[in-house]
Computed example of a mutant assay.
Amino acid sequence: MEKESAAFRELMLQLFRTRMTFRRAVQRALKKTEAGITFEMLQVLRCLWEEQGISQQVLAERIAKGKAALSNLIMNLEKKNYVYRLENPSDRRNKQVFLSEEGSLFYKRISIALDAIYESAGVAIGLEKVKSMSADLKLTGDVLEKV
């Protein structure tokens, strides 16, 4: 039991380190392309690229940010004309967030630099290993949901 606990603790530490390394790689790509956005802003744009019109609450959960922090991110993205908010017709207290046409064009442009990161890392690691690691991480997440 003690060995499993220590091994799992090391796995979570390595997962955290890998996330931070990934974040730095993305930040370098954003800087190199002179994108003028932060990693967190990119997370918002990515979520909206995948699903338009989601609520701020759902968006906050998906990028693991508090409502106040998300509100600031959205406000900064609105200033750049990349996103806009509309009242939810069924619940006027909730706002839905959308990727603007300009935001969509910007995301397409910036995703080329991001795809280079994914391709380079994917080739270096190998498809079978990536699939295996992905399945293992999904299992880990599923187990942690039940703890």
Rank of each mutant, 00 (worst) to 15 (best):
K3W: 11
S5F: 07
A7L: 12
F8D: 02
R9D: 08
E10C: 08
E10D: 12
E10I: 11
L11N: 07
M12E: 09
L13A: 10
Q14W: 12
Q14H: 12
L15Y: 04
F16E: 12
R17W: 04
R17N: 04
R17T: 07
R17C: 14
R17D: 07
T18L: 15
T18A: 15
M20P: 00
M20F: 09
T21R: 15
R23Y: 04
L30W: 00
L30R: 01
L30C: 05
K31E: 12
T33S: 15
T33L: 00
G36A: 12
F39V: 14
M41Q: 15
L42E: 00
L42M: 14
V44Y: 07
V44E: 08
R46N: 03
L48A: 05
W49E: 13
E50Q: 15
E51Q: 14
E51D: 14
I54F: 03
S55D: 09
Q56S: 05
Q57I: 08
L59M: 07
R62F: 04
R62C: 06
I63L: 15
K65M: 14
K65Y: 03
G66H: 09
A68P: 00
A69Y: 09
L70A: 15
S71C: 05
N72Y: 05
N72G: 08
L73R: 11
I74M: 07
M75Q: 12
M75N: 09
N76K: 10
N76L: 13
N76A: 10
E78C: 05
K79D: 15
N81P: 00
N81C: 05
Y82S: 03
V83R: 10
V83H: 05
D91F: 12
R92W: 01
L99T: 06
S100T: 14
S100D: 02
E101G: 07
E101V: 14
E102M: 05
E102C: 04
G103S: 05
L105K: 15
F106A: 01
F106K: 01
Y107F: 15
K108L: 06
R109Y: 00
I110P: 00
S111Y: 09
S111M: 13
S111T: 04
I112W: 05
A113Q: 09
I117A: 04
I117E: 01
I117K: 03
Y118G: 00
A121K: 08
A121I: 13
G122Q: 10
V123G: 00
V123Y: 02
A124I: 03
A124N: 09
A124Y: 02
I125K: 08
I125R: 06
L127M: 12
E128S: 14
S132T: 11
M133G: 10
S134H: 07
S134V: 06
K138Q: 07
K138H: 12
L139C: 02
T140V: 15
T140G: 02
T140L: 10
T140R: 13
G141D: 09
G141T: 14
D142S: 12
D142E: 08
V143L: 11
E145I: 14
E145W: 08
K146P: 03
V147E: 11
V147W: 02
